[in-house]
Every structure is written in structure tokens, then in C-alpha cells.
Design a protein around this nucleic acid. Sequence first.
DNA 1: ATGCCGGGCGAAGCCCGA
Length: 261
Amino acid sequence: MKIASWNVNSVKARLPLLLDWLKAASPDVVLLQELKCQTDAFPMLEVESAGYNVAVHGQKTYNGVAILSKTPLEDVTTGLPGDDTDVQARYIEAVTQLGDGIVRVASIYLPNGNPVDTEKFPYKLGWMDRLIDHGRDLLALEEPLILGGDYNIIPDDRDAHNPDAWEGDALGRPESRQRFRALVNLGLTDAIRAFSDAPGEYTYWDYQRGAWQHNHGLRIDHLLLSPQAADKLTASGVDRTPRGWERPSDHTPVWCELTEG
DNA sequence: ATGCCGGGCGAAGCCCGA
């Protein structure tokens, strides 16, 4: 089964591209971020007509995450545990079928964290601490699990065209990278890095300065797999196709393939 | 490069993203 993650930068603005890409790539499960719409404004009929069950955690104007799956979605939960005062729609989790078993998936829109001298940066770091705590709980279930989404983290220098420019930025700061490593070190596998050590596996290109044309990108969208999922991992990649279409998102999908046996 | 593009909101221009 193919599982993909895509920050669409407004699901309403991107609906034609989303439907075209669903048809072309035919992923079994899709994790979406930055819907920029409320739950009841999600284009449910169009996406269901494309063959998907849908779970949405929306919010007006900002954020918003969803899970699409060809098989039914169960045990849907919204919001990252650990802070009842956090109202930002950045986390949704559900269980769906994987062969004769199940896979648990989460769609994550991790806070950007800039500027770092504002409350936005500690919010990001606190959110990551909560994700580490929740990840630890989920791993204890010993299930196939995929924590996927826009992490807004450049894990390593090879994941940015000009890494020096991101040293002081919330995407590349040591505090951010340290927490990403702590999350991975719980026992998760970065699906892209399981198959490729190459630089330039970018998933995001700024709209400005011809970043796409010059391949000045970042690898900030990630699929992190539990051991039970990683044991089934057969392939992964970045699908650059929709980034080259008219009126694209600034992110492009990242995907992985799991055997159903 | 103090966001140069693009989306939301709302009807001009500001907020936000990474």
C-alpha cells in the first residue's frame, strides 16, 4: 500500500490539483496539511467521489489537517495530547486497514516557529516535546505506525540547498533538530533516508526567486515509521510532479510503500 | 533580502507561511 503526505497550502485553492494527483498517483492513504479551511468547508463530496474515506480537523484561515484512505478510518482523534489550551488544528490520527491487519497514521503540521525571538519558537519546541511524549506512547502499542506530515524541520545540512542560511532559523536551529532526532531516536525510521543518503531530496521550494526552477529547496516533509511499519517498507520517494503543475502548492508529496503481507 | 510569491480575508491592504 502507498501512503503519502502533502502540504497543499489551501485545499480549496488546490482542489483541482489534489484530484488530478489522487487519480495519477493513486495513493491508498494521504496525509494532508495546511487545509486553511474549517472542517465543514472541506470539499468532502469531491474527495469521497475520488474513492476516499475522509477525516478532517479543520480551522478557519490557518492550519488544518486531514487523512484520506481508500479503506475505512477508525479511532479518529484530533489534537495533539498534552496541552488542552492549544487550539491550533495541527494533528489528526486514525487507524485504517493494511492487508489483514491495521496501520495507525497521523497527519502532522508542526509549527513553523519563526521568528525565533517570539513566543512562536517556544510554542514549536513545546509542541515537539508533546509529539515526542505521544510518539513514545504510540510506539508502546507495537503497531505499524506512520507519523507523517510537514515537520518544518531541516534534519541535516544535506536537506537544504544552502544550509548555512537556515542555521539561526526555527527550521534549522539546534533546538529544533535535537528534538527531531529525539523523536526519531525513540525508534522511528525516516522513510526517505531508509533508501537514500543523497542530498537534494527536497519536498518544499519557495514560490519566490525561482526556487523551484533552480532547485533551491528544503526537505521538511517526513514520514516516520515504527519498527512494525519499517519492517514492511519496500520503497519511498518524493513525487515532484505536482510542484511543476500550474498554480502549485509550495510543497510536493512524499510517499512510501508498505507490503501488505 | 524587513516575504521578491501566494493564500485568506474581504474588498485594500495586512497577516501569515518557511
